[in-house]
Design a protein around this nucleic acid. Structure first.
Lengths: 200, 200
DNA sequence: CTACCTTTGTGAAGAATTTCACAAGCTCCG
DNA sequence: CGGAGCTTGTGAAATTCTTCACAAAGGTAG
């Protein structure tokens, strides 16, 4: 989050940013900003604040964003299509090197810069290209077996959009985005807001 | 999360579930499960565990999921298309009642059960139908002005897929899903894992 | 009915996180 | 150069979150 705002400030030409300013932008407190950043090192100058451009570079290095990451998309449905065309990925240094599905009608279709391939080819491709990250956009009932296959193929991190609980070995990183669950969080907030209103 | 697993257990016909069992499913601890659930009430039976079906109903009520929520999708791009067709929403009680865009070429196109409408019509529609939730799937540079307009129209909760920081008044709930940021989290995990390997 | 097994609900202890507060350091200005 | 004005970095305090541990309660078997 800090990186996102620092990049903004950087492109706007701002030289330095105080913990106060960053806190306001990020909706947190100055002390929190300083504690967070101090965990990784001492980047600021007293009396001045943090050097925007330099701190940006530091954070990018900390996050491992100085390199390009190869990504495969598993599942050529609607969500897969949206993700494959999502500019944000490329902009942030994630290059989609392949899209895979098991539907014969989809295999062979050109999708932007890549062509939908048979998922059976994924293991070889991942091994050859040393692709570490997979984005999972498949129906939830197929999720776990597919996960097992791509993990066996050498995938080391998975961004999961299937609304299913999946398990991975400890050496694999997993992040799940469950859109229905996000909406349910909003439902809870709305329901509680109504209650709060009726109470006070 | 508890709800998701309890629903699974319920459809599998399981009558009761202990905090131990739920903890294993959810990847947490029995004490955590009991503390979490006890926050909302005393649902379990000592010696037996929690009644699966009853607790499911309780949680759905707590989350405000006993009713149907109307949802509008703002932005008829790729992500909007994926979301409009996303079965998970309907399955979980969120009904997409409208899709809006400002691109004349998109307006009027039929999208599943609804037709893409001019975003200028959104305020009236939202006011008439009392639609509380909007899903935002538009480019980030247009995000804030559109947010201001739909908030003024009466939207009370926003699920934001634009990779931009947006601000809302306190009475509006906001959840942001930033896919690039999720990938950056994986990048950090991978970078650290490599470091950890090279260290130990 | 009683003894025993299981599991919840919850105060208390422990751990982690956040906030406070201030010394130390940098810049600017006269 | 020296004092005034900011801002960081960080121990310590405060708060929040998690885990522990056990009394209370339901079930079961005999």
């Amino acid at each position: 989050m800090y990186l996102r705002y620092l990049e903004n400030l950087d492109t706007m030409g701002q030289q330095t940013a105080s913990s106060d300013e960053l806190a306001q932008l990020c909706g947190t407190t100055p002390a929190q900003v300083r504690k967070d950043l101090s965990f990784f090192g001492s980047f600021g100058k007293r009396g001045l604040g943090y050097p925007v451009h330099e701190l940006t570079a530091h954070l990018r290095e900390i996050l491992g964003l100085e390199r390009e990451w190869k990504v495969v998309i598993v599942g050529a449905g609607k969500i897969g299509a949206a993700l494959a065309n999502y500019r944000g990925f490329r902009q942030r240094g994630f290059r989609v090197v392949g899209v895979y599905d098991n539907d014969p009608e989809k295999i062979g279709q050109p999708w932007g810069e890549v062509t939908v391939q048979d998922i059976a080819e994924l293991p070889d491709d991942v091994a050859r290209e040393e692709t570490p990250i997979a984005v999972l956009a498949i129906p939830s009932d197929h999720a776990q077996p597919v996960v097992d296959r791509i993990v066996a193929a050498g995938i080391r991190a998975i961004l999961n959009f299937a609304p299913a609980q999946i398990t991975v070995p400890p050496h694999v990183s997993l992040k799940s985005v469950n859109m229905a669950m996000e909406l349910e969080g909003l439902s809870f907030a709305l329901t509680n807001a109504v209650t709060a209103e009726s109470v006070g």
